[in-house]
Simulated scan of single mutants.
Amino acid sequence: MESFFVSTGIVALAEIGDKTQLLSFLLAAKFRKPLPIAAGILVATLFNHAFAAAIGSWLTQALGPEVLRWILGISFIAMAGWMLIPDKLDEDDAKLAKYGVFMTTLIAFFLAEMGDKTQIATVALAAKFHAFWPVLAGTTFGMMLANVPAVYCGSKLAGRMPVTLVHRIAAVIFVILGVMTLMGMGSEMGL
């Protein structure tokens, strides 16, 4: 259960102000159909994070525990620094295809999430916890926690969110995870 809750919390915090959350606001403003947008986000996230969690699970098999511990520890600390860099929506992410609300959301969200901090975090969390399904469920739930309110509440929510504070909290959590991992405190990893 720890892997589910940690994955949910980290991704929900990391997603605040992220380019995919900005894309959620954009899609909601353009289409004004929250249910197919939320469904597209869910499906895109499941595919994207399943791929990322599979890579993380593979890394646990491919690398020795000592090498993996150092890579993960440094990766978590690097993620903390990345959290402090504000995201902007790329013009390419904002170009919407004409395939209907659900497919447009699925394609745009999947592409925007490729190489994004939450996808990289999913790789690291799956490797750290050796728990594909709980990490996939947690990171997906965290994405939905951050993006569904953006879709439904849109402009009302955007101006009131203390994005900088939320990013700082997420950065602190990533640093703590990184230091704990480097110190060998990852009980699931047997370090």
Results as ranks from 00 to 15, higher is better:
residue 100 G to K: 11
residue 69 R to W: 00
residue 92 D to M: 11
residue 92 D to Q: 08
residue 77 I to D: 00
residue 124 A to K: 00
residue 137 A to N: 03
residue 91 E to L: 13
residue 119 Q to L: 04
residue 133 W to E: 09
residue 92 D to T: 14
residue 113 E to Y: 00
residue 79 M to F: 13
residue 122 T to D: 07
residue 66 E to S: 13
residue 145 L to P: 07
residue 151 V to Y: 01
residue 154 G to W: 09
residue 155 S to R: 13
residue 125 L to H: 06
residue 114 M to C: 07
residue 95 K to D: 12
residue 64 G to T: 03
residue 90 D to R: 15
residue 111 L to Q: 06
residue 148 V to A: 08
residue 142 G to M: 03
residue 140 T to S: 12
residue 154 G to S: 10
residue 133 W to Y: 14
residue 139 T to G: 11
residue 65 P to R: 12
residue 110 F to L: 08
residue 142 G to A: 09
residue 76 F to C: 00
residue 146 A to Q: 09
residue 118 T to I: 03
residue 85 I to H: 11
residue 76 F to I: 02
residue 155 S to W: 13
residue 73 G to I: 02
residue 109 F to L: 01
residue 63 L to D: 07
residue 144 M to Q: 13
residue 107 I to L: 04
residue 66 E to F: 09
residue 91 E to P: 12
residue 72 L to K: 07
residue 148 V to F: 06
residue 108 A to D: 06
residue 84 L to D: 09
residue 64 G to E: 13
residue 153 C to S: 15
residue 66 E to I: 10
residue 138 G to H: 08
residue 91 E to D: 15
residue 93 D to R: 15
residue 127 A to D: 09
residue 141 F to T: 15
residue 130 H to Y: 03
residue 92 D to I: 09
residue 97 A to W: 12
residue 143 M to K: 15
residue 137 A to P: 03
residue 79 M to V: 07
residue 97 A to H: 13
